[in-house]
């Protein structure tokens, strides 16, 4: 696909969006920050607890931190990282999404065992099997030259 084609697709998408917007949809802007969860008292990480199940202006239900949210949050994070940033500083995400760090997330946050972080316990042995069966899940975090430095001492 040529650059010209890509540009035409992007322009077409933008033009479509502009036209669709002429319907005069109401305007909503996210706040800069969500209050710290501790300030709200003893409440779980389910957005719907306070925000309910209304789908407008933001469908907060999709951001509920289910027990497997660590594994599947990319689907919603790809679409609007600003929702994540309401509660999480970039440093929080950098525990996993990072150019290079020596401490795996489960060691950096050793006592936060409720977060179900990747690679907890004896992952060195398990990764031989998980890596053979599902290398795409390794690649998401260890795929670039700096983050793959974790792999290179053994794998080259």
């Amino acid at each position: 696909m040529t650059h010209g084609t890509i540009l035409r697709i992007l322009c077409g998408m933008a033009a479509f969006g502009l036209l669709a917007s002429c319907a005069g949809e109401k305007r909503y802007r996210l706040p800069v920050k969500h209050p710290q969860i501790y300030e709200l008292g003893e409440r779980r990480e389910f957005c719907t607890k306070c925000h309910g199940y209304k789908k407008e202006p933001v469908d907060f239900e999709r951001y509920n931190h289910t027990p497997l949210f660590t594994d599947s949050h990319r689907l919603v994070a790809y679409q609007d990282q600003r929702i994540c940033a309401l509660c999480h500083e970039q440093s929080f995400c950098n525990d996993c999404h990072v150019s290079r760090t020596e401490l795996k997330p489960s060691i950096k946050n050793e006592t936060e065992n409720y977060r179900r972080m990747q690679h907890r316990g004896d992952y060195l042995s398990r990764h031989r099997i998980d890596g053979r069966l599902d290398p795409t899940s390794c690649y998401r975090c260890h795929g670039n030259p700096r983050s793959s430095q974790t792999c290179q001492p053994c794998h080259g």
Binding site: Y139, G143, N144, P145, S148, C151, H155
Partner: peptide, 27 residues
């Protein structure tokens, strides 16, 4: 997934990804 299109075969990538990308396996 198609390894040849998903995984990087560039020199900076870790060896397992470079090798797998050449297989062209679909998962």
């Amino acid at each position: 997934y198609r390894y040849a299109d998903f995984l990087s075969r560039n020199p900076g990538s870790a060896n397992p990804f470079r090798v797998l990308s050449r297989f062209g396996d679909r998962v």
